[in-house]
Design a protein around this nucleic acid. Structure first.
Lengths: 145, 145
DNA sequence: GGGGAAGATGAAAATGATATTCAAACAAAA
DNA sequence: TTTTGTTTGAATATCATTTTCATCTTCCCC
């Protein structure tokens, strides 16, 4: 299996785009993290390694990384789009505590299968899906009282 | 069961907020629709009935209607938040054609049950969820070739 | 290994959705 | 009715993201 760096380089070459130090740095920074970073947070991290980098480059590169399939946008309903590395990772959904923000990755084959079936029943070809479960985790429930 | 208008009036009274003609007009306009309106679209419709209404009032009222449980925000990944009336409606999810925008409401008890189970397995109390299936509808698939 | 065209970059300005400010108008409780 | 706190519309601000533009860089060909 190709490394994410290779995948990205190939993707760029395919489109006659260029591999630059900035693009490499942004990808590397993303891969080092297993958090779900917002563009703002990523920009801060990247800036520590290269003082001269610009926000626009971060946004531009995130767009490319998304198109190349290396990362995926997440929507935790907090106003910013976050991203997570997705290359070589199994697909999963998210279970989010609305109180403390805790975030658990979940995967359920029963649900995945039913999604396919549902789409097919309506004549759709399923391309992707988003599922977010919002609730309150055990700890927060205890703290609440 | 109380009418949406009553629910809204009670909600406002509870919070020491006021029932105004603008708020009534916005709610009525929303209820007449069974489309998924963006604030912009709603503003246009409302403006036809009351030339003097402002955008800000539409945004402010949508926020209140959401808090009162009468409407629900939807995320079709097209950059705008859309809303649908949800009072007295059974919960459902959405199956969206990424090509033509067609939007089918779906409900599946197998999935709903598994969601509850999954949350419980992680010690969570499930409060709500979002599930969007994105794909291509039969018609668009044919057109494509 | 340099020359040049196509792309990429950073800074600043533009955009687009949504939120806030403010002075004037209004709803509702007394 | 008077009063008080709320709401309104218009304009302005905000916030995330995108675009513009002049300058720099990559990479392909000789």
């Amino acid at each position: 299996m190709k490394s994410p760096q290779e995948v990205f380089a190939d993707f760029l070459a395919d489109r006659n785009l260029k591999t630059t130090p900035q693009r490499r740095l942004i990808l590397d920074t993303l891969l080092k993290q297993n958090d779900h970073l917002s563009p703002e947070e990523l920009y801060a991290k990247v800036k520590k390694r290269d003082k001269s980098i610009g926000q626009a480059t971060v946004y531009r590169t995130l767009k490319l990384l998304n198109e190349s399939g290396l990362i995926e946008p997440l929507d935790f309903a907090d106003g910013v789009t976050r991203y997570e590395p997705s290359y070589g990772e199994e697909h999963h959904d998210h279970l989010i505590c609305e109180r403390c923000g805790k975030n658990i990755e979940i995967l359920d084959t029963v649900i995945e299968r039913r999604q396919e079936e549902l789409a097919a029943e309506h004549g759709f070809t399923l391309l992707r899906h988003k599922m977010y479960l919002y609730g309150m985790c055990g700890e927060c429930r205890k703290k609440k009282q």
